[in-house]
Amino acid sequence: MALFGRSPFKPIQAHMEKSRACVERIKPVINSIIDDEPAEFDRVFKEISDLESEADVIKNDIRSHLPKSIFLPIDRRDLLEILDIQEELPDTAQDIAILLTLRPLKLPADMKEPLNNLIDEVATVCNQAADMVQEFDELVETSFGGPEAKKVLGMIEQINADETVADGTERAAAKKLFDLEKEVEVLDVIMWSRIINKLGDLADSAERMANRLRLMIAK
């Protein structure tokens, strides 16, 4: 009798590690465009694509092992929801990489700093979300309560705070881009503005994951 289903918590952590690796590669991939290094760009672009499809495989495996008859220590829908949001991280990272291939892009020197600031802050938020997901097995071990749960709630607070900071940086970067609209080609402005939006989306996704996890702990 198959009393025990396959626990989704280890696989979801594996998926998050792929996602984290994708997000970490956004900085090199964008900078390879700015610094005009096509070989480096191709290499990192391929890494992102590979990681994204690996994450996809893990996600499908988790989903196919979570039929309705599986009973989890948390609401099954919450878990599937968190997985869906988590999937947005590698997806968005790949979207950004693809945007960079659509047309040759130039970035004014003054944009480099605000853009890199934004990338760093987004990466920080996503990293924290990944650290949070890595606590899943400890949360299961303590059945989502006690000091372990408090620790994770603290991490969630931190993610919320840092996402707000990243929001501000996103606005600043966008503002700077439009301040420079005279020096930049219109199409470049559109493309960079979309990229900045996507970067903001990454931090949003991380925050939404954190809020979902808060619900799981509060159950």
């Binding site: 009393l3 008859s69 009973f71 989890l72 220590p73």
Partner: peptide, 29 residues
Amino acid sequence: TTHTLVGAVLGVGFARGIGALNLRVVRDI
């Protein structure tokens, strides 16, 4: 005894103690 033990494991599961339980066993029982 088997079914009793299954019931007990499910009890632990309902206390959020177990990673993934297959509720289809209840139907099998």
